[in-house]
Amino acid sequence: MPKFQITTQKVGNNVTLVNVQGFLDAHTFEEMETTITGLFNEKQFRLVVDLSKVDYISSAGAGVFIGAIGTAQENRGSIILMKPTANVKEVFDLLGLSQLFQFADDVDSAIKIFQ
């Protein structure tokens, strides 16, 4: 099982890139939630979440983004989902979230969404 890891880095235009690796499920979602809450506490509301190394997501994982995007948008930010794998994108499609979230192919295009 790949180890679940989250790292964050500032990428300009007051945007934070959140790199996630592993399975985002009912076992790991709280770690994701804690990371996002911590960024909100630091007034970081423009988040780009790189999902290219997330092999699996369940509703518990997707629920973190559902629960957080409203707060981000209320503070003139958002949560952009970057490069989800086919399996992960399929779950967003099944949940009807693909129309409610914005997706980006790379960091530059994600940053432009905030401009």
């Binding site: 939630e33 369940s58 509703s59 518990a60 997707a62 629920g63 973190v64 559902i66 629960g67 957080a68 995007i69 409203g70 707060t71 779950v91 099944l94 949940l95 009807g96 979230l97 409610l100």
Partner: peptide, 22 residues
């Protein structure tokens, strides 16, 4: 209602919906 879920910041209650979808 997913739009309502987002407006209310609700994080749970989606598993059964997925089971039925699949």
């Amino acid at each position: 209602d997913m739009g309502e879920h987002i407006r209310q910041g609700r994080k749970s209650g989606l598993g059964i919906f997925l089971m039925r979808q699949i």
